[in-house]
Amino acid sequence: MALEPTSKGRFNLEKASILMLETNGMGMDILVQIVTGLGAKALHRCQTVDEARDTVKRNTIDLVIADALTPSGEGYEFVSWLRREGGEPNCFAPVVVTAAHTPVTMVQNARDCGAHYIVKKPLTPVVMLERILWIARESRPFIECDVYVGPERRHKNEGPPNGVPRRRDDLPPEVGDAQEPNLSQDQVDNLFSSRKVTL
């Protein structure tokens, strides 16, 4: 659900330790102005992937906002590294990747790096805040296997993509014969009617 920019809902980012990875000076300025506007105070500004790795090793990070660093795509590699080698609790940190443009050759890296969300530039305060709040609200399990480490990617209830086999715990696609007679209209109506409940 889209965030209403005029909402009076409150949130508090003051104590959140935020790692920001961005090599472009103006890009970093834009990001800093957005997150400080949203109330963040504990910022780790990293202009190289090496700096970002050092920061992860020395600090507990509550949120990572990493640029994809197109065209090299090093930002995606950093997120993959964080997931596999960042150590707990940082390896589970919420990650938003920002991307100016995703080259065709990088689409798979973007999908598989283990970020919670990828936000296309230009960045806006509303979209950044919305993604942060979404991450905080969601309860996606974290998947760790040979080819992927990160939040579960199938979280939109759109079913498995074409050509992808179903998981063992998915319900079978075939629907069997009815085992009982259909509900009557009265029974259906009763399902929707409000009732007084004694607790």
Partner: peptide, 28 residues
Amino acid sequence: RIHRPKYALATMLRKPGGTTVAQAVEQA
């Protein structure tokens, strides 16, 4: 392996104080 991590961020966002969405967006 499936993990269910608890995000410290979620707890921090609910702490007293902070700002409203409208104020934050306006400031940013």
